[in-house]
Every structure is written in C-alpha cells, then in structure tokens.
Amino acid sequence: MLDKISREDVLKELFNISVGKSASILSEIINKKILLNVPNVKIIDLKDKETSLEAYLPEVIDGTLMISSISFKEKLTGKANLIFPADKMRKFINLCINESSMDNKNDMNFTDIDFDIIKEVGNIILNSLIGEIGNYLDIKLQYTVPEVKIFHKKDLKNDIKNTEYTNVLMLYITFNIDGSEIFGAIIINLTLNSLNEILSKIDILKENFYV
C-alpha cells in the first residue's frame, strides 16, 4: 500500500523542482556549476504570538542580510523574499560581472550597480520559483517591480510581521558555488486566503495521484 502523501510533501517537491530550475538559471548567469540542496519547507503562522521568525532561520544566516523581493497579486497575494548574508554577496556580484578579483570579497560597500545586479538576479530567480509553481498549480500571478534592501537579522521579524500577510512559507536553501557554500532562505509571505488557495490546489493534485 502506498504511503499517504502530505501537503508538505507535495509543496516540498514543487519547490524542489522550481528551485532546481532557478539554480540552472543562476548557473547560466554566473557561468559556474551550482549545486543545491533539497529545500526544507515550513509553513509558519504569523498570528501565533509565540512564533519567532528568526528562530526558523538557520544560524548561518546572521548579521547583515541582503534581501531581494517581489510582490505578487491577482489569484495569490503575497511577497517572495530571497535572503542571503550580505557579506557573501561580494563574491556573487563579482561572478555575475565576470570580475575575478576576490581581494574585496567581504567588502560591504555596495554600489548602485551592485544593488541593480542583486535586484535583477533576485527577480529572475524569484520569478522562476514562484512562476513555475503558479504554472504547475494553474494559478496566475501579477508581479510588482522588484526591490532590494539590506538590514539586520533582528529587524527581519518587524519587516515580515508588519504586513497584512498572515502566513509564511519558509524554504532553506544552500548554494554551493565553485566550492563555497552560501546559505540562504526564501521567505514567501502570504495572506490566509492565498495559502488556502495553494493548499486546495495541492489537494486536487493529491487526489489525482490516487486515480
């Protein structure tokens, strides 16, 4: 007899496929092989006062963070955020612009061009991630212009919680680029209706598994 498939199993596999596509896209941009771990997916209820969002972030994601985001609306309303430690971003930016010098790999003085690169790469990755899931679940999304910002991990909770969103899908990802690991996370803020829409589409998918 087949084991029962949980909603989390389906969600994890959907993200696994779309993160794989995002990695392939990223690999094209920086012209390096990228290895990715299988993401863990957690559904977090922000209404729960005991919930500490930082506690869900791995310890390696600490200090100053660089966050690239896009918001979406229409059938789903939410915001997808790609989060990486800012001190790892210099090497990544250098790879994007084919700059081989690693002397300033921890330089955190980011220029407008650096922000432009991170914003655009975040846009491409998040579009791939969210768009592929939308395609798979047949949910249309309309995006707003991407943004990028830097802030400290301790301020993350305020930024994420001070919104109309009630739920968070948290994905942990590790990019292994050229031998160095960059730990990151993807936080997708959703309204309760949007989370329910995704879960109901997943239930339809699950039903089809047993036909």
């Binding site: 579009n127 791939s128 768009g131 395609n135 249309k140």
Partner: peptide, 22 residues
C-alpha cells in the same frame, strides 16, 4: 524573467516577434 505560460500567451497575442526568458 516571467515564466508563466498565461503571461507568455497574453503577450504573444500583441504581435511580438519573440518572447525570450531571462
């Protein structure tokens, strides 16, 4: 960067030459 099929179909109806993904 938009990979949604619905967006590609909608924009293709505007008589573009090609739709390429980033």
């Amino acid at each position: 960067a938009d990979v949604q099929k619905s967006v590609k179909d909608e924009i293709s109806d505007y008589g573009i030459v090609a739709f390429l993904n980033k």
